[in-house]
Structures are given as structure tokens and as C-alpha cells.
């Protein structure tokens, strides 16, 4: 167990160092912060709405993540495969599961850092008025879980291909489906191919429904379980794919 932990930590560390060794990380952070700011203050009209809450900030996060997180996740495995380092990685005494988890956690932490850098928005509304801090804290938790879900999907799909662009486009498409599941277009498609109880299940898969549940300030076990199990299942799929493609 401790060996597994150690291995995961090694991959995690290597990956995290990798982020900050290249300009990619800073470009991502800067672009994320600028877009967040523009969405919150211009499109969301935080200052003009005159209410001390961060709704304008959080309501744009799913859409922002939909575009930015696949960009972050696409290189996780596709790059390793493209450059051939995946063989090197997997000849080390590390199981694919440990590698998958380590890489995912590093990326998640990195998104967490990006999110932490927006804490200025929180400070600003607290300075301007008296927001409900419980709601904001819960919203941050929801945003982090949402980011994890997008990341897990992106990482899994990145393992399918050695072309980063393909990984990127696939991730956006699947992420988009998850955002929109519950909408008629997706449901009609589901009705055609799935049995009835699964259609109902698909309806419950909407990122927005679960995310909105957290953003209103309630930590609901169902929302948390949804995001965590989604992360779990995609990481598992990721492991299976890495394992089966080892020989390719």
C-alpha cells in the first residue's frame, strides 16, 4: 500500500513539476484569470448587479472549464504516447493505476491553484458588502468537483489517442454532452438507444443540475457522490485504456 502511495506521489510530483517547468502553466493560469474576470465583471455584471454574491463568477465556470480543461488534459497521455515516454513510464515499477491517479491529482491540484488565484473576487465582494460566506465556500467546492469531472474525462480520452487535437475535440464534445444531458436533444438520442431506466439515469447526469445544487449553498451527498463517482469511473477507464494500449 505504502509502495503504491509512494509511486503515485512520485508521478504526481513529476507531473506537477512538469507544469511549472513549461510556460504552458502560466499561459493557462493567465488566460483562465482574464477570462474569468471578463465573464464575471462584464458579461455577468458583478459590479452593476449591486448584490454581494459571486453568482456571476460561478455561473460561467462550467462553460469556461468546458473549453479550458480539455486543453489542459489533452496532453496528459497523448503527449506521452506521441513522444514515446509512455513506455519509459510504464517500464518503471509503477502500475498504470498509480500513474493515472498521480497524473490526475497533479492536474487537479493545478486547477485548484488556478481557482485559488480567483480568491480576490471573494475578497472584493466581502469588501464591497456582506456576502454569505457559506454559500461561496460551497460554490468553490462545487467548482473544484466540476473541474475534477472535466479533467477525468479529458485524461481518459487523452489516453485513447496520440493526437492531442483529437483528444481536445473529443473531450469538449463529451463534456458538452454532460453539461447538456437532461436537455431534449440528448434525451431523444438516449431514448433511441437505451432502455427506459437508463434514459432516466442519463437525465440525472447533467453537470449543471449537480453544480447548481452546490452553488446555492447546500452540500448534498448526491451531488458529491455524482462527481466523485464520475471521476472514479473515468479514471478507471483511463487505467484500463492505458493498460490495454501498453503494447501498441
Amino acid at each position: 500500500m505504502s509502495v503504491a502511495l509512494h509511486n503515485t506521489r512520485c508521478v504526481f510530483k513529476r507531473e506537477l513539476q512538469g507544469y511549472f517547468a513549461t510556460p504552458v502553466a502560466y499561459v493557462f493560469l493567465v488566460i483562465y484569470l482574464i477570462l474569468s474576470g471578463v465573464f464575471t465583471w462584464y458579461l455577468g455584471g458583478l459590479y452593476e448587479q449591486d448584490q454581494a454574491d459571486l453568482t456571476p463568477f460561478f455561473s460561467f465556470q462550467p462553460w469556461l472549464f468546458l473549453a479550458l480543461i480539455p486543453a489542459l488534459a489533452m496532453r496528459l497521455w497523448a503527449e506521452e504516447r506521441h513522444s514515446g515516454t509512455i513506455e519509459l513510464l510504464l517500464t518503471l515499477p509503477i502500475s498504470p493505476g498509480q500513474a493515472v491517479l498521480g497524473k490526475f491529482l497533479a492536474a487537479w491540484l493545478f486547477v485548484g491553484v488556478a481557482l485559488a488565484l480567483t480568491v480576490g473576487e471573494w475578497i472584493t465582494v466581502a469588501w464591497l458588502g456582506g456576502p454569505d460566506h457559506g454559500v461561496i465556500a460551497t460554490s468553490y467546492l462545487g467548482t473544484l468537483l466540476l473541474a475534477g469531472a472535466f479533467l477525468a474525462i479529458g485524461a481518459c480520452l487523452s489516453a485513447l489517442t496520440r493526437n492531442q487535437v483529437v483528444a481536445f475535440v473529443l473531450s469538449i464534445s463529451i463534456g458538452f454532452l454532460f453539461i447538456l444531458s437532461g436537455y431534449p436533444a440528448v434525451l431523444e438520442f438516449a431514448e433511441a438507444v437505451l432502455p427506459n431506466f437508463l434514459v432516466e439515469a442519463v437525465q440525472q447526469m447533467s453537470f449543471l443540475t449537480h453544480f447548481n445544487g452546490l452553488v446555492r449553498g447546500v452540500i448534498d451527498a448526491r451531488d458529491v457522490v455524482f462527481f466523485l463517482s464520475l471521476i472514479g469511473v473515468f479514471l478507471f477507464a483511463n487505467t484500463v485504456i492505458v493498460d490495454s494500449k501498453k503494447a501498441d
Binding site: 440525472q204 447526469m205 452540500i219 448534498d220
Partner: peptide, 18 residues
């Protein structure tokens, strides 16, 4: 898991609003 949670965990929640 999610179908189960949907009914079993209905009342498992923490209300963080002020």
C-alpha cells in the same frame, strides 16, 4: 451508485447558507 444515491441519500446534506 448514482441511482441508489438518488433515493438513499436524499436527506444527506449540509446546509451552508447563513
Amino acid at each position: 451508485i448514482n441511482l441508489f444515491a438518488g433515493t438513499a441519500l436524499r436527506f444527506w446534506r449540509v446546509d451552508m447558507t447563513e
